[in-house]
Each structure stands twice: as C-alpha cells, then as structure tokens.
Simulated scan of single mutants.
Amino acid sequence: MSAELISAVRGRDAAGAGRLLGAGADPDTREEASGLTALMIAAGQADAPTVRVLIEAGADVLTGDRRAGATALHKACQGGSLEVVRALVEAGAFVDAVAPTTGHTALMDALWYKYPDIARYLLDRGAGLKVYTHYGFSLEQHFEYELNVNTFGKEKLLEAERYLNARRGGDEEAVARQELMAAVAEGDTERVRKLLDGGAEVDERYPNVGGFNDSHTPLLVASRDGHTEIVRLLLAAGADANAVEPTFGAVPLHKAVYNGHADITADLVRQDGIDLDFQGATNGYTPLHDALWHGYEDCARTLVEAGARLDAVGHDGKTPLDLAAEVFGADHALTARIRAAR
C-alpha cells in the first residue's frame, strides 16, 4: 500500500491517494529511493490538492527528508505553489525551520528559486531575516549572491528585494512604536506606569527582528530581567501571566525562576489562573524544574508551596526530585520535602 500511495502522489492523483489513505495507508510513507515523504513529494510538485489530502490524513508537516533534512515547506518553496506553502504553514509548519545540511530556511529557498509571492507570504508570517546558511552567508549575502549570478528571471529577484526592504522598514517602524517594551527593557518604572495609564497595549508582542525579545510580551521581558515593580504594574494592568514566547516555549514563570527572581516568582504564583506546571517546548521542563536546575532554592520553595506538580517529567526523563537531589543533594531539606510530598 505504501508503494501505491507514492505512485499516486507521483502521478498527482489526489483522489487515488485519498482512497489509499482511507484504506489505511500511512500518510508519512517515504519513498525509498529519494527519502522523501509523500507530503514532500506533493509539495515539491506544487500539487495542492494532494497536499491537502495528505494533511487531512495527518501527514507530519515538520519532519525532514533523509538526505538533506529539509521539510515539506522547503520543498514547497522549490515547487513554487503559494497555495501549498499556505496550506503547510496553516497546518503548523515552522516558517523558520532550517535544513541541517545547508542552513537554508524556507524564505531562503523561496528567494533562491525566484518565487517572490511566496517570499512575500513568508515575510508577512514573520520569517526571520537575521539567519545564516551553514556555509557562512547571511540571508542578505545569500540574496546578493543570487542577484549577481542570475541573468534569467532577475526581475523576480528584484521584486522579492522590494518585499525584503519593505519588511525591514516595517520592522523598524514596529520597534519604534513599541514604547512600552522599550520602557520595560530599560527598567523605567515611571514611564511604564505612564504608558499603561495612557492605554498602552499590555500584551503587545515584540516584532521578530532576530533579537532576545522576539515575540515576547512586556511581562515576559520584565520577568526575565528582574524588574519587580514593572511586573506588578503589568499584572495590575491585566497582562497575561501565561503568555508563551515561541523560541523556548517559556512562560513568565520560567523566565523569573530561570534567573532567580524570587519576588517576581512569588507575585506570579498568586495570579488567578496561573499555570504552575507549563512545560517548555525545548526541554519539557516546568518552572519548578528550571528553579531546581539553576539552584534557586527560594524560587523552588515558592513553587512547591504553591502546589506545583512534583511528578512532571522533562524530555530528559528527570522529575523535580531528580533535579533536587542532583543540585542540592539527596539529604538537603528541599529534596527531602519534595520526596515526602511525592
């Protein structure tokens, strides 16, 4: 059935692929010769109907191919179908996924294969601009190289360049508008107070410009940087105490305990609806894991007293008890408390 599915996909037979999937064919079937999944093949062939059939059947939009490690989104940017690219992104594909062999992102491939409409879409979706290939080129250098070596289709590259420049200008304007974030980053409590009183958007996300604050809310930054009074002002203004930043998949509690900010930790755990046990996407650690991992006893005690889960397991298989014993010692009072509570 796997061979039949690959044959149907290669033949752009969406209906046939649908029948096979309905009969139990694996939507993540790989073609032996190429190492490509059925979804990658359909995406590279710009076959939107088949891509949608595979996605609806549960095909993995994140996995990489066996030779270059590129994703279906990379293949779609080679194939040139904006419809396919949009379908993959809407299904959860990572816009900035990097091919491990080249270091290319989907945006780099869209530029390389001269599809300005796809480049524009990815730029609008926040694709990163401060990225590098694994052979030493920045995105900007890579694009300049393309401009120099191409004669055919150069007008498409120039169109894409206009979109790149518009995105850069838009990022600069967005940063300039973020007065609240600027005040938070500077630790300017009085300015934060005035801006909030004036109606500043308390949960506005910072633009993705290749920096430490990308996609962070002011509360995430204030919690990370230890601005206790600013954290209190933001919480009083209704800031989302469970806001997740996408880089590490962390919430404000992670930020606070990771850096040992005990007062902020205490303020956050008292918030209505606070998620004490949110597990970060990078390592599966809860805030309690992080507090123990970095040796911040006060933060860890605050979380334990607030009722944080003691049986949560990180991606490394470790529980809070494991980390407590590793960091503080098996006979430490905090370790004993966690052991007894479990």
Results as ranks from 00 to 15, higher is better:
residue 184 V to M: 12
residue 186 E to M: 12
residue 189 T to A: 15
residue 189 T to G: 05
residue 192 V to Y: 08
residue 193 R to L: 12
residue 199 G to F: 09
residue 200 A to D: 07
residue 202 V to E: 06
residue 202 V to R: 06
residue 203 D to S: 08
residue 204 E to K: 12
residue 205 R to Y: 06
residue 207 P to F: 06
residue 208 N to L: 13
residue 215 S to F: 13
residue 216 H to A: 07
residue 216 H to L: 08
residue 216 H to M: 15
residue 217 T to V: 14
residue 218 P to H: 08
residue 224 R to G: 10
residue 225 D to A: 11
residue 225 D to P: 00
residue 226 G to H: 10
residue 226 G to M: 11
residue 227 H to L: 03
residue 227 H to S: 03
residue 228 T to L: 08
residue 229 E to Q: 14
residue 232 R to P: 11
residue 232 R to T: 07
residue 232 R to D: 10
residue 233 L to V: 11
residue 234 L to A: 11
residue 236 A to F: 06
residue 236 A to R: 15
residue 238 G to E: 11
residue 238 G to S: 12
residue 239 A to W: 05
residue 240 D to C: 04
residue 240 D to H: 07
residue 241 A to W: 04
residue 242 N to P: 09
residue 242 N to M: 08
residue 242 N to D: 14
residue 243 A to H: 03
residue 246 P to V: 12
residue 247 T to H: 14
residue 249 G to Y: 04
residue 249 G to D: 07
residue 250 A to L: 08
residue 252 P to D: 02
residue 254 H to N: 05
residue 255 K to T: 00
residue 258 Y to G: 00
residue 261 H to D: 09
residue 263 D to C: 01
residue 264 I to C: 01
residue 264 I to F: 01
residue 265 T to S: 02
residue 269 V to T: 06
residue 270 R to H: 04
residue 271 Q to D: 04
residue 272 D to V: 13
residue 272 D to E: 15
residue 274 I to F: 11
residue 274 I to E: 09
residue 276 L to Q: 02
residue 277 D to S: 04
residue 278 F to A: 15
residue 278 F to T: 10
residue 281 A to W: 04
residue 284 G to V: 11
residue 286 T to I: 06
residue 290 D to P: 00
residue 291 A to D: 02
residue 293 W to P: 00
residue 296 Y to D: 01
residue 299 C to W: 00
residue 299 C to K: 00
residue 300 A to W: 05
residue 300 A to C: 08
residue 301 R to C: 03
residue 305 E to G: 07
residue 305 E to R: 15
residue 306 A to L: 13
residue 307 G to T: 11
residue 314 G to L: 03
residue 317 G to C: 13
residue 321 L to T: 13
residue 321 L to K: 10
residue 321 L to N: 10
residue 322 D to E: 12
